[in-house]
Design a protein around this nucleic acid. Structure first.
Lengths: 340, 340
DNA sequence: CGGCTAATTGACAACGTTACCAATTCGGAT
DNA sequence: ATCCGAATTGGTAACGTTGTCAATTAGCCG
C-alpha cells in the first residue's frame, strides 16, 4: 500500500488524497484543504485539485476525517417504530433539515423495548455522531450515561412534559387530551369510551388516556369504559374494538382513540353499520393523518405537527454549541372534521 | 493526549482501548481481541477485560475500526421518500434484518430527483458502507461508477425488469398491471379509467399504467381516460380526481389507481356520493395497505410485499461475497376486497 | 532591487482500532 | 525437570484524513 500505483486499470480502487495530490502535483494537505473548502486557496490550486479529483472520482473518506476530529457529520436517530406513518413523517422532517446541512441520519429502531433501545443507542454512538435524537423522555439511565460521556447534543422528540437529557421538542399530551375532553364535552357528549392499543406503548399514550379520564371526571362525566388492545394499532383493530366496546357499553355516545388508525377503523365500522355519526356517536382520533381528511365524514382529530417536530429536532441538534438546551412545545390543533 | 490520565473526574471522556487495557492490566490488542470476540481467549482475560470495559462504559470507536478495515458495518439506504407508508414498511423490513446482524442503516432520501440522488449516494458512500440499497433500476451513470469503484454489494429494490447494478428484489410491475387488467375484465368491467399522481414519479408507476393500457387494448377494452396528477398522492387528491374523471367520463365503470392512497380517496368519494360500488363502479388500488382492509367495502388492490422486499434486500446485501448477484421477484397478490 | 507583510502551501503527528505474525505462556508427555 | 507443541497474548504498522503551525511564495512599497 505504501507504493500504490497512481493509475490503475485493475480492480477498482478508491482514490485517496494521495492519489489526487500526485495527479495534481501538489501536497496531500492542499488537496484536503481544497476539498474541505478551507480559506486562502488560490484559484489555480483549486482548479488543479478539482480537475484531478474529478478525474479520479475522488470521494472523501469520512471515516478518517471523523476519527481525527473525534466527531462525524452523522446524527443518530432512534425511533420506536416505522410501522405507521407517524414516524415516517417525523423522519421526513429530520432528514430534510439534516440534508440541508450536509448531515446524514444513521437509524436505529427500538420497537418500544427498553433493552433494545439501550443496544441500539450503544451501536449508533459507536459512530461518533455529532448528535442524537431520541424518542420520548424516558430512557434507561445507562442511555443517559452513554450520551453524557460523549458530550454531544441530544434532542428528545414527541413529549415536552418532564426533564429532558438535553433539548426536547414535541407537545403536551396531557393538554391535548384535556383539550379533546373539553372539545367533546362542549359538543354535548357525556358518556365516553376510549380505545388504545399495543398495551399503551409508548407512555405518552397512557398519559393521554389518564389526562382524558381525569378531565372528564372533573367535568362530571367519568369515562364509561376503556379498551386497551395488546396488538398494534390498525384500522382493522380499531373497527373490531369499536364494535366490541359498543356492544358492552351501548350507552357510550363518544369514543376517543389513541390514534387515527384506530379511529378510522371505528369510523369505517360506523359507516358499515349505518350508525349516525356524529349524532348518535362521536369519534375522535389523534394525529390528524391525511387519510382522515378524505373520509366521507372527515375524522375529528388532534392534529399533531409531526413533520415540524422532526425538522425542529434536527435544528436543535444543529444549533450553536454555546446555546442553552431548550424545550420546544409545538402545540397541536383541533381538527374539527365531521365525526363529532 | 499521549499521557492521558487513566481516570478523570473532569469533562467526560470517551474510554479507549488504552484506558481499558490499563485498568485490566493487559495490552490494548488483547482488549481489542476480546471486544471483537476473536478466538483463543482465556476466560480469565475475557473477564478482566469485560470488567474493565464495563467499569469505563467502553464503547468501541467504529470509525477507527472501519478505517483500518476499509469497510464499516453501515449499510447505505437510499429511498425516494418517506411521505407515504410504502417506504416506511420497506425500511422496517430492512432495519429488522440489518439489526439481527449488527448493522446500521445510514439513510438518504432522493425525493425522486436524479441530481439529489447522486449527491445523496456520494455522501453515503463516503462512510465506506459495506453495501448500498437503491430504489428502482434506473440511476445516473455516475452513481453506478461510484458504487463500482467501492466494489461493495448493491441491491436495487422495488423492480425486477431491467439490468440491475448488482442484485435486485421487487416485483414485475408490468405483470401486476396486466394481472389487474385481467382481473377487472373478468369481473365484467369494460370502460376503464386510471388515476396516477406526482407526474408518475417513479417510472415504475408509469410502466404500470402503460402495461395496464396495453393489456386492456389487447382485450378490446381500451382505456377511456387517464388522469395523472402533478401533486403527490393522497386520499384527498384521489377523491377529487375521481369526481373529476367521472364527471368528464361518466361512462367509466372501473378505475385503477396508481396506489391505495388515491384509491381510498376514490372509495370515500363513492361512499359519500352514494355510488353503487362495486356494481356501478369498480375501484382498485395498488399496494394493499392496512387501512384499505378495514373500509366498509375493503379496497380491492394489488397486494405488494413491501416488508419482505426490505428484508430480502438486506439479506441480499449480507449474502456471501462469493455468491452471484441475483434478481428476486417476490411477486404480488390480488386482494379481491369488496370494491370490485 | 530589497525588505516586509500577507497570503498560500506544506509538514507533522494525531485520531483508535485491527490483521498479521511474532513472542510468550501453558499443558502434557517423557 | 525438561522439551515440544498448542494456546494465548502482544507488537507493529497501517488505514486516510485534519488542526496547527512552520515554511514558502507573492505582492507591494520605497
Amino acid at each position: 500500500m505504501t507504493n500504490r500505483p497512481t493509475t490503475t486499470t485493475e480492480k477498482p480502487q478508491r482514490a485517496t488524497l494521495r492519489d489526487v495530490a500526485t495527479l495534481a502535483g501538489v501536497s496531500e494537505i492542499s488537496v484536503s484543504r481544497v476539498m474541505r473548502n478551507a480559506p486562502n486557496i488560490s484559484d489555480g490550486l483549486r482548479e488543479r485539485v478539482m480537475d484531478a479529483a474529478n478525474t479520479l472520482s475522488y470521494t472523501p473518506n469520512r471515516l478518517a476525517g471523523a476519527l481525527k476530529n473525534q466527531s462525524s457529520n452523522l446524527v443518530a436517530v432512534v425511533l420506536p417504530s416505522m410501522s405507521n406513518d407517524v414516524f415516517s413523517t417525523v423522519l421526513d422532517g429530520i432528514d430534510a433539515v439534516l440534508d440541508e446541512h450536509g448531515l446524514n441520519a444513521v437509524l436505529g429502531l427500538s420497537e418500544y423495548d427498553r433493552d433494545r433501545e439501550l443496544r441500539v443507542v450503544r451501536d449508533l454512538l459507536s459512530w461518533s455522531p455529532m448528535g442524537i435524537i431520541l424518542t420520548g423522555l424516558h430512557h434507561d439511565e445507562t442511555v443517559a450515561g452513554m450520551i453524557a460521556q460523549l458530550d454531544i447534543p441530544v434532542v428528545q422528540i414527541m413529549e415536552t412534559e418532564g426533564r429532558p437529557l438535553g433539548s426536547a421538542v414535541g407537545m403536551s399530551h396531557t393538554k391535548a387530551a384535556e383539550t379533546a375532553a373539553d372539545f367533546l364535552f362542549a359538543k354535548g357528549y357525556r358518556r365516553f369510551g376510549y380505545i388504545g392499543a399495543w398495551s399503551e406503548r409508548p407512555n405518552r399514550s397512557r398519559a393521554r388516556r389518564l389526562a382524558f379520564e381525569a378531565r372528564l371526571a372533573s367535568m362530571g362525566a367519568p369515562l364509561v369504559a376503556a379498551t386497551i388492545l395488546e396488538e398494534r394499532s390498525s384500522a382493522l383493530a380499531g373497527s373490531a374494538a369499536t364494535a366490541d366496546l359498543r356492544a358492552r357499553h351501548p350507552e357510550i355516545d363518544c369514543i376517543f382513540y389513541a390514534n387515527d388508525d384506530l379511529a378510522l377503523g371505528g369510523l369505517f365500522h360506523a359507516l358499515a353499520e349505518g350508525i349516525d355519526v356524529p349524532n348518535a356517536l362521536g369519534l375522535m382520533g389523534f394525529n390528524g393523518i391525511g387519510t382522515g381528511k378524505a373520509t366521507p365524514l372527515p375524522l375529528s382529530s388532534i392534529q399533531t405537527p409531526r413533520y415540524e417536530i422532526g425538522a425542529m429536532a434536527a435544528r436543535l441538534i444543529l444549533r450553536d454549541p454555546g446555546e442553552a438546551d431548550r424545550v420546544v412545545d409545538l402545540g397541536f390543533e383541533i381538527f374539527e372534521g365531521g365525526t363529532t
